[in-house]
Write a protein that binds this DNA or RNA. Structure first.
Lengths: 113, 113
DNA sequence: TTATAATATAAGCATTTACTTATATAGGGG
DNA sequence: CCCCTATATAAGTAAATGCTTATATTATAA
């Protein structure tokens, strides 16, 4: 049995506001599928590095993602222990798979390390 | 079996952006529970009538709510045929019940008609 | 230590947003 | 028809937002 912890409207809306931005929702989708470093996300989303970093900062501050440094690279993955992770999963599962884009990245040897 | 129709990241993020605002998320919560007119929402949320109307306009444009006029009053209810209604329900179910607030409104005879 | 690569942060800016106040519209009752 | 009530819309504004460019930080490698 799953304990349903209720959140406040403010807490939930602040999470939804973060997901309610195309780039950030994409980032969430990617780091839900697998751990990725900043430069990989820059490639995948075709956006500038500062833009991606700033989005990641917001997601990290909201504890929606976790970071781990490995040498020069900082890897991000989804935080599956977030208070409303259950909802976040439902949201991300509505989106079509991005597996092909990740494979394309591998094929082009653009993966870091 | 439920057919899982995938939406684009843009479509989904635009819905989440609308829900990612405290007042609008509250409105959705209320019209999910029952049909309400504008002046009732004004009471419940303690906000100005134009502010509520403008939020309702956005929700209506996104087909998240449906409206029906009855005399002077315009009633709004959730659109349970929205493309991602399944997700919207999951989101709203995370929030604590607002039943008590609706009862309080009734008790004070603030319900229209 | 110096150079280089990956990432983060700061500052600036154009756009969007959520309200306000004022006014328009629409329907019901006299 | 006129008046009143409920709602919608318009215009204005302060604050928030998502980018850009420039620079700082951090770790690795020479």
């Amino acid at each position: 049995m799953t304990i349903q912890t209720k959140v406040t409207t403010e807490e939930l809306s602040s999470v939804l506001k973060l997901l309610g931005e195309k780039t950030r929702l994409s980032i969430m989708q990617y780091v839900y599928e697998r751990e990725l470093c900043v430069c990989e996300l820059v490639e995948l989303l075709s956006m500038s590095q500062p833009a991606i970093s700033q989005h990641l900062r917001k997601l990290k501050d909201a504890k929606l993602v976790q970071e781990k440094r490995r040498g020069n690279w900082v890897y991000y993955k989804i935080n599956d222990e977030h208070q409303v992770y259950y909802v976040i999963e439902k949201i991300l599962n509505e989106l079509p798979s991005i597996e092909d884009k990740l494979q394309e990245l591998e094929r082009q040897n653009l993966l870091c390390k």
